[in-house]
Nucleic acid binder design. Sequence first.
DNA 1: CGAATTGTCTATCACTTGATAGAAATCTGT
DNA 2: ACAGATTTCTATCAAGTGATAGACAATTCG
Lengths: 243, 243
Amino acid sequence: MRSRSTGTRKPRATVHAGSTRRRHRPGSGYARGEHTRQRLLEAGIELFGELGYERASTRAIARRAGVSLPALQYYFGGKEGLHMACAEYVTEDVRARLGPAAERVRLALDRQGLTRAELFELLRAVVEPFLEGLATERPESWALFFARAQGEHTAAFDAIFQQVSARLLAIVTEIISRLIGRPTGNPEVTIRTVFIIGQLTLVRRARPIILRALGWPDFEGARLQTLKEVLWASITQSLAPAC
Amino acid sequence: MRSRSTGTRKPRATVHAGSTRRRHRPGSGYARGEHTRQRLLEAGIELFGELGYERASTRAIARRAGVSLPALQYYFGGKEGLHMACAEYVTEDVRARLGPAAERVRLALDRQGLTRAELFELLRAVVEPFLEGLATERPESWALFFARAQGEHTAAFDAIFQQVSARLLAIVTEIISRLIGRPTGNPEVTIRTVFIIGQLTLVRRARPIILRALGWPDFEGARLQTLKEVLWASITQSLAPAC
DNA sequence: CGAATTGTCTATCACTTGATAGAAATCTGT
DNA sequence: ACAGATTTCTATCAAGTGATAGACAATTCG
């Protein structure tokens, strides 16, 4: 009774293999398309971040982007495609901000026989940009998207973020390993590493809770400085040799 | 065109004020009702945990509970009511497990002039049950529900969980304050407290990541012991006086 | 028993969602 | 200017959502 179907047909899972299907070569011509693509990407990041994947409807995204609904399917193949594209987009930014520092530290670690002070310096060099990136946020929407995507376990995001996360983890593992004088594979090394990095991510995840507990409006200027110092002191002390 | 409406009327937000509306006094008689109520609660915890609030449809919940759809509305007033009831249900369990230890520590803290060793002992007394509760989980579904509800910021869950969280926070704040010799309101005290507790919650939140990094199947027996020891060592060291 | 209360279920409602068809508009290189 | 590719839009689809009406069954207690 409900459906006035014009014959049977499968509505979902049409031919396209679920990937972006841009119709033009990215370099040349048809610039207008690239613009609405960008708009959709930004609107997607905003709304996925504000509402989460489910609550953010494709209609709302299209409306905020100022384009019509089918544009979303046209450019990203569907809602999930857009979500994945958003994840790639923000991850690229993170990579750009962490990459240089990480690379420098990696090279420095090739040298054997570093002093404790030098190792701490390297740890700081890789930890600080990470913490700052988490505490002070670019477009507020990115942070939200990031937090949200990590909470909802999207296959897409996991795979993408792993690239960044794995590198950071590897570097910190190496430093901790030398600092506490145990091999890289040792459980203690792994546990300490994971929890140090995890602690940093708390700045993002538990952000409202921390701010409320402190009575702070945000992590800017002097307050960010205080946060960094206390956290750093806590980390260095926890890695100090028994005394 | 679409709607064959039988007259205009508002579909949402009907009369009931959104609260459980149990029709019978909880103590006596009509035992069958209490049973399906319980089934819905358990099914709700499972599916909200597995799929999140949005993806868990009322139909799926009713099906898993082995009852019909309207039973959900009948007992909990609607989907949101069930979600809130689930939150209360699991929180009550947490409270029961943490309460006694917390109360003992609170009383012990009334005494002034405790030694550092005694303070550490108290911290451990309150931290360990918390950690164990997070690492080894009751019905696996509870843990999932917990993590999920905390990620999706439901007003209901926030308010409920606050009760438990606030008590733990207050106690740990007091201990840290004495250990590092600064007043309770000091930002350093607050930051360290929040991050110590936050670190513990990571056992739940980052559970899969940590397990994968370690190559462990779970946190049981000897592995749980190792985790506890390393974490505890890290915490005590980070609170050690500069030396 | 028998009336009132309490619990359950089928059928359906109004509405939203993601997606598509297909015409129309726009742009491109020739 | 024109053919062909690219982009955008309106209208519509089928499936699924939470919720309700109201008949029916079970339970309680006089």
